[in-house]
Design a protein around this nucleic acid. Structure first.
Length: 216
DNA sequence: CGTTCGATGCACT
DNA sequence: GTGCATCGAACGT
């Protein structure tokens, strides 16, 4: 079941939590590639210094200001594309960054895409690492600028409940790779999952924060 | 184990 | 010109 627009039209932290265990799917002429979401981060509003909306509306962050359920894809560090799901209502700029997936469909295609432009061969990639990290998963799924602004309720790029989904434990911690806004525990992940990015210490199960993500 | 650092290009000031 | 919501190789302990 594809997630409807109302799913995204909610408080961003709720959307972030509920995205764990759902499947991100990209359909292209080369085939279908998908994976279960096991790590996300929330970026919420102009008051969040780490959110791209912090400077106010610009050409780049325009999708954040639009309706929920839209893909916000941007280019970073000169070589990586990062994909977000826009949340909350029009004029409330917020989104959930997808940081890691457990590969489900199209692993051969993912390997091929990951190897593109490198010295490595497709077979060199470990399956658990195919979609570990926000830059890696967009490369594996073939997501880049043409996918920016796509409707996540559409047919090309969407998020759905998966038949392979199961209940995951979840935990919250500080967001990774930012220099401001680190006091917020707005990174949501599956502790101990082999496809989650970041250091082991960051990903340890914190007992008071342990919870279970819903499959629905 | 841990930390540092270079690659690489563009939006924004 | 500056600074990235990164990655992985190279180095130090």
């Amino acid at each position: 079941m594809k997630l409807p627009r109302e799913f995204y039209n909610r408080p961003t932290l709720d959307v972030a939590r509920d995205l764990i265990g759902k499947a991100l799917v990209h359909v292209t002429p080369a085939g279908r590639a998908s994976g279960l979401i096991v790590e996300v981060e929330a970026y919420i509003g102009e008051a969040d210094p780490a959110c791209h909306a912090a400077p106010g509306p610009t050409k780049r962050n325009a999708p954040l200001y639009g309706p929920p359920g839209i893909a916000y894809v941007y280019f970073n560090y000169g070589m990586h594309y990062l994909v977000n799901a826009v949340t909350e209502g029009v004029g409330a700029p917020a989104a959930v960054l997808i940081r890691a997936l457990e590969p489900v469909e199209g692993m051969a295609l993912m390997r091929k895409r990951r190897a593109r432009g490198t010295q490595k061969r497709a077979a060199d990639f470990d399956q658990n690492g195919l979609c570990r990290g926000p830059g890696n998963l967009t490369k594996a799924l073939g997501i880049s600028l043409p996918q920016n602004g796509l409707d996540l309720t559409g047919a090309e790029l969407f998020i759905e409940t998966s038949p392979v989904a199961r209940d995951f434990p979840i935990a919250w911690g500080p967001r990774i790779g930012i220099s401001v806004g680190t006091e917020q525990a707005w990174r949501c992940f599956v502790p101990g999952h082999p496809c989650v990015s970041g250091r082991a210490a960051l990903n340890a199960l914190r007992p008071p924060l342990a919870d279970v993500a819903s499959t629905r």
